[in-house]
Design a protein around this nucleic acid. Structure first.
Length: 1161
RNA sequence: GGGCGCAUAGCUCAGUUGGUUAGAGCGCGUCCCUGAUAAGGACGAGGUCUGCAGUUCGAGUCUGCGUGCGCCCA
């Protein structure tokens, strides 16, 4: 027996029960142990941060991350799922600062780094409980209690190992990074913070002359002397950066003009396209003397407006790598970023105060032999004030000097024009009077650029979904790779494990805490010991964090008595997460980690949202490529190192890895938007909390919504209605079939437990075939064979879809199957289940039960990875409960079963097509009825089905009864020649004829359209071809070249499909009308039964008063039918005393209807 | 400003290498069923496929330009 099912199901309640069951029985763990030793399917969890509350977007990621591991597990793979938490970084610090009501680094220092870090640790897991609850409620199976945590000591040490490896290979270096700098607060701002602070301001905009120094000749006939006495005209909105000028940039392929200024002796050079606008602005006439390409200007030297640096090294030259020498600075250089949108087409370059300017300096420097190129010029201190290198302005806030600088330029006749310029400029978001400046900070970099080609090669092997990520967003990003700015001048993060000699500057990297402690003369470990003593609850992991790790020093090997001290920075937390393939195991320091790592590398599958392109996806790929790529010969410098500590070569354990690594397949999820299409935002309340969604609709509804409504990479707008709709569309529809089965199986005593005596396993077809009463599929009726064919077709298709990570298509197939099962199989089979007698009584009935049972069991397996709760609920009843008292038991959970892959021998393609055709004919028949306003209740004499070809005609003729039944007609006739109802149109097969006929095709189409289709068809049938006369020679078409389209003629109740037309006979005989009336009466009486709250077993008495002779005749004619259908024991043509009548209409006739429950006696 | 993506029915979205009548679900309308029953089902209306131009015998699909939106980066 099956457990009976409550009439109305609450999925949320059901899910909670199932979740409990999983937990109690350890089903997840069993699903893994059942696959012990199997081929691994490797999944990496991209670690979320748990210091914020999860929202529906996280549910999407976690649903997809659950779907494929579940699927692959059922397919026989061993898929370990280790959870992870991202715990470092600015977001955590910001959260703690908020809590403390402080902002700046100064305030943090004042509060104390030690208590601050301790606050960070507390904050990291503030919402862990909510995250774990969500994970469980969503049915995301993952090992939470074995999660890797980025601040844990073993994780940090693993990251240190990676950094040491890079350092020892010369891939870690110190340089400058231009950051948005809040000078008053002495801190850099993250891009997010900068983005918040933009506002429109007016800044001085100046057009400044840079006199050209000794121009070289331009070449024969190219304007001799054109550049004599000429000045480059440059434009800037930050006059205070002029003292730090190093270059002037032009665009090589842009045209420049040399112009004479009215009444002035010196000429100007600027972009041709801007001459007019500049002239208009300055109110001066500019006369073009000659034009030349930007390329011709490159290399020209000029005098910068300030000589603080030029005076010292203006004449200095350096050796170029390609040979020869060049002046190190104050030259015209090429740059692609130069535009003619604003300015003059010549751009002042102060590399210290602009990121692109700095990149340009780097590029210039790279042209020179090491050590001979230009150094960064920076005349401003971190406090935003000019330094002693610019004595004129020393000690003054840079923006305050703009005016004076302009005055000075004017005094030296270097100012061509000045104006106010309105633009967006960032200010500090916490001190909004303070403008930010771009400013160079010393920073550590990873030389990723040396691995660009290898990263691209690696990327090209990754299976990205959607595909365009590979060459689009991600590929482009790799193409424009710059070295990874690794260090952060912050507190809460993995400390950069580099110790520097305080005297000589010699530095080395440390790969583990033990390695550090083993250094000679270690001191400072007591800082941590002291803290631990004071507060024993501090996690030991803090020992490798600031400030404790900063206290640890050791003897310098380079200078007696000197100490090695750690640099102060922590690292970008993206490096943490990108290191997870090995760091999650604590590789290589933790015992056994090498095996875990090797076994779980690379990942077969990862998935995160699109915003991770430059985040986790990049950090994974970059770190893996740098550490584990086969060819390291390109690594510059240091490889031969001067007595560096022993290099642990990753190649010894992870040998030459073939690409791609560290992940093979990656689904890039679209971003989830709020209900209004905007960003999800708490304050806008444009989404619902996950827990509320679970409580209202359930996790399966949410999951199905994610999987079935759109491909996962489309950005998805949160839609409450769409989640809700998943319930009736899929979940409830299947549930109703399942419920239908259970109700009647229990009534009829259909009990698989008594029918199967052997081993049950997963109750697959082979096992079911051993059951008493289970007949071979081939022996069963057509409908049974059809639905089993559909079932196996579906399984085959779903597997094919899921193997290429296409959950959307897979869901479409599942929906289609459940629709076929519910709306055709069960509907057409209902009376088989209702037929009287016990199940054994009729083989037809038994077949129906076994067929539906098998469909439901298999469906529960098919849907298990998608909607794990519903699948389990079905399995627990149909399989587990059904055999509760039997000798043998089936699989304990549907999630321990193998995924059905479809049995090809059970698939009957032809039957599938034929049934589809029958369903189409029925559908067209209904459409024709609607068109003729003939309700289905009115029986009709005849329906004629016109077929374009007779392939399926014999089969359809055998199934005439089915069509009659569905359409309520007495007779169906099939025909191919029905010229009175329809016209034939012969159409060319464009796919065939297009390539063959080309330009003749329109003429052929015209001829065919105008011709008599019936005649053409007859000709083709008779001779095998038809010849069309065309201007360019006649064309012969055979039967393959044409398609026949049927068109219903006007005046018939007809509906047409592509290759079939259904025509109704609308003629109504007296008998048909009476039968129709009788059926109408039945409906009216049934309605009345329901209105008067009859139980469906109640017998009733019916009285009808009417003036209509037709109606009375119909009642007399169909008295038994009406009484039978409505369970009426009496049907009288008179009033029933004491009963309130219902005044109603049947057809055009009015009647009074009396209904009362008959006495039970 | 740059890169990438998206734009199809009132809404949410499909649309396979270009091919004849562009699909689904919801919503809406009309109706059916009343032994899956506080369910279920059918049918219908609704589309200048973002705009313009091009390639082609043929464009929702390919190309170019524009508009709008999103994300990432400046």
């Amino acid at each position: 027996m099956f457990h009976s099912i409550e009439s109305s199901v609450s999925f949320p309640k059901l899910e909670e029960e199932i979740a409990r069951l999983w937990k109690q029985r350890g089903i997840y763990e069993k699903s893994l142990s059942a696959r012990a030793g199997a081929q691994p399917f490797v999944f990496y969890e991209g670690p979320p941060t748990a210091n914020g509350l999860p929202h529906p977007g996280h549910c999407l990621t976690r649903s997809i991350k659950d779907l494929f591991p579940r699927y692959k597990t059922m397919r026989g793979y061993l898929c370990q799922r280790k959870a992870g938490w991202d715990t470092h970084g600015l977001p955590v610090e910001v959260e703690v600062c908020k809590e403390l009501g402080i902002h700046s680094k100064e305030e943090i220092e004042a509060f104390g780094v030690e208590p601050f870090i301790q606050k960070c640790v507390e904050s990291v897991f503030r919402y862990t409980q909510q995250w774990e609850q969500l994970t469980e409620r969503l049915g995301f199976w993952i090992h939470l209690d074995e999660a890797y945590v980025t601040f844990h000591r073993s994780y940090v040490e693993s990251v240190w190992w990676a950094l040491k490896t890079l350092f020892d290979r010369g891939l870690l270096y110190q340089g400058y990074k231009i950051v948005w700098w809040w000078a008053q607060g002495g801190t850099a701002l993250s891009s997010g913070e900068v983005g918040q602070g933009y506002r429109e301001v007016a800044d001085p905009s100046v057009y400044v002359r840079f006199p050209i120094v000794s121009p070289r000749p331009l070449g024969e006939g190219q304007g001799e002397g054109l550049l004599e006495n000429a000045d480059l005209l440059v434009w800037t909105t930050t006059p205070w950066t002029l003292p730090s000028n190093q270059f002037a940039a032009v665009k090589p392929d842009l045209e420049y003009a040399v112009v004479a200024v009215e009444g002035e002796s010196r000429k100007l050079v600027l972009a041709s396209a801007l001459v007019e606008s500049v002239a208009a602005k300055a109110g001066k006439e500019l006369k073009v003397l000659g034009k030349l390409a930007g390329e011709k200007l490159i290399g020209l030297r000029y005098l910068p407006p300030y000589r603080f640096y030029y005076g010292k090294c203006g004449e200095k030259q350096g050796n170029l790598k390609q040979g020869g020498t060049q002046h190190i600075a104050w030259r015209v250089v090429p740059a692609d970023f130069v535009t003619i949108d604003t300015g003059t087409g010549i751009v002042h370059q102060a590399p210290a105060f602009g990121e692109v300017d700095y990149d340009l300096l780097q590029a210039e420097r790279a042209r020179f032999v090491d050590g001979q190129g230009p150094n960064l010029i920076c005349s401003v201190g971190p406090d935003g004030k000019f330094t002693d290198e610019t004595p004129d302005y020393q000690g003054r806030w840079v923006k305050d000097c703009d005016r004076e600088i302009i005055r000075q330029l004017k005094g030296e006749s270097l100012l061509f024009h000045q104006e106010q310029y309105l633009h967006d400029y960032p200010f500090c978001w916490r001190a909004d009077e303070d403008p930010l400046i771009q400013y160079p900070r010393k920073s550590w970099f990873i030389r990723t650029t040396a691995f660009k080609e290898r990263m691209l090669a690696n990327n090209s092997r990754i299976n990205w979904l959607p595909e365009h990520i590979r060459d689009g967003r991600f590929g482009n990003f790799l193409e424009s790779n710059v070295d990874w700015a690794l260090s952060r001048e912050r507190y809460w993060g993995t400390p950069l494990p580099i110790w520097v000699c305080e005297e000589t500057g010699y530095s080395e990297a440390i790969g583990s805490y033990a390695e550090l402690l083993a250094k000679p003369g270690v001191k400072g470990t007591e800082a941590w010991q002291e803290a631990k003593k004071q507060n024993p609850s501090l996690p030991d992991d803090l020992s490798v964090h600031k400030p404790y790790i900063d206290a640890v020093t050791y003897d310098s090997p380079k200078a007696p008595g000197a100490r090695m001290r750690r640099v102060s920075e922590v690292i970008d937390c993206w490096f943490d997460s990108g290191a997870m393939p090995f760091a999650q195991w604590g590789y290589p320091n933790q015992p056994g980690s090498a095996d875990c790592f090797k076994n779980q590398f690379p990942a077969d599958f990862i998935s995160e949202a699109l915003d991770q392109t430059r985040g986790w996806f990049y950090s994974l790929l970059a770190i893996s490529t740098l550490l584990f790529s086969e060819d390291n010969s390109a690594s510059p410098r240091r490889l031969a190192g001067e007595g560096q500590s022993e290099i642990r070569n990753p190649k010894s354990e992870i040998a030459n890895l073939p690409y791609p690594h560290p992940f093979r397949n990656c689904i890039v999820l679209g971003l989830m938007l709020g209900e209004d299409g905007g960003k999800m935002s708490k304050s806008k309340r444009n989404y619902r909390e996950p827990n509320e969604i679970f409580d209202r609709y359930g996790a399966d509804a949410l999951r199905w919504y994610f999987f079935a409504n759109q491909p996962p990479w489309t950005s998805i707008r949160y839609s409450e209605q769409a989640i809700k709709d998943c319930i009736p569309e899929f979940l409830l529809r299947l549930w109703n079939v399942y419920s239908f089965f259970v109700i009647y199986a229990n009534i009829d005593g259909f009990d698989p437990a008594t029918a199967i005596s052997g081993k049950l396993g997963q109750l697959d077809t082979k096992v079911l075939a051993t059951a008493k009463g289970y007949r071979p599929i081939a022996d069963r009726g057509e409908l049974d064979r059809w639905i089993l064919s559909e079932l196996n077709r579906t399984a085959t298709a779903v597997v094919e879809c899921m193997d290429r990570y296409d959950n959307f298509a897979a869901c479409a197939r599942l929906t289609e199957f459940v629709d076929a099962l519910s709306n055709w199989y069960v509907r057409r089979s209902r009376d088989r289940f209702w037929s009287s007698g016990a199940a054994e009584a009729s083989t037809d009935k038994t077949d129906a039960y076994w067929t539906l049972y098998e469909c439901l069991l298999t469906t529960s397996k098919l849907i298990a990875p998608f909607v794990p709760f519903l699948a389990e609920a079905m399995w627990q009843n149909l399989a587990v409960a059904a055999f509760a008292n039997a000798k043998n038991q089936p699989a304990e959970s549907v999630h321990l079963c193998d995924y059905p892959t479809g049995d090809p021998t059970a698939i009957d393609q032809q039957l599938s097509e034929r049934m589809a055709l029958a369903r189409e004919i029925v559908s067209l028949g209904r459409s024709a009825r609607m068109g003729a306003k003939l309700k289905v209740r009115q029986p009709l004499a005849l329906v004629e089905v016109v077929l374009a070809d007779d392939t399926h005609r014999p089969w359809l003729e055998e199934h005439a009864a089915l069509i009659c039944d569905e359409l309520n007609v007495k007779r169906v006739e099939f025909t191919q020649k029905a010229e009175q109802y329809i016209t034939y149109t012969v159409l060319p097969d464009l796919k065939r004829l297009g390539p063959r006929l080309g330009k003749q095709l329109p003429a052929v189409r015209k001829l065919l359209a105008e011709a008599d289709g019936g005649k053409l068809l007859a000709e083709v049938e008779a001779t095998g071809h038809v010849t069309l006369p065309l201007p360019g020679g006649s064309v012969s078409l055979d039967a393959e070249d044409i398609q026949v389209r049927l068109q219903a003629k006007e005046g018939w109740a007809a509906a047409q499909g592509h290759s079939v037309v259904v025509v109704l006979s609308t003629e109504l005989t007296e008998a048909l009308i009476q039968e129709g009336l009788a059926r109408e009466l039945v409906r009216v009486i049934q309605d009345r039964r329901k209105e008067t709250d009859c139980e469906f077993t109640d017998r009733i008495m019916v009285g009808i008063e009417t003036d209509s002779a037709d109606l009375r005749a119909a009642i007399e004619q169909f008295r038994d039918y009406i009484a039978g259908e409505t369970l009426a024991v009496e049907l009288l043509l008179q009033e029933l005393a004491g009963i309130e009548p219902l005044n109603t209409k049947v057809g055009d006739d009015t009647l009074k209807l009396y209904v009362k429950v008959a006495d039970q006696s």
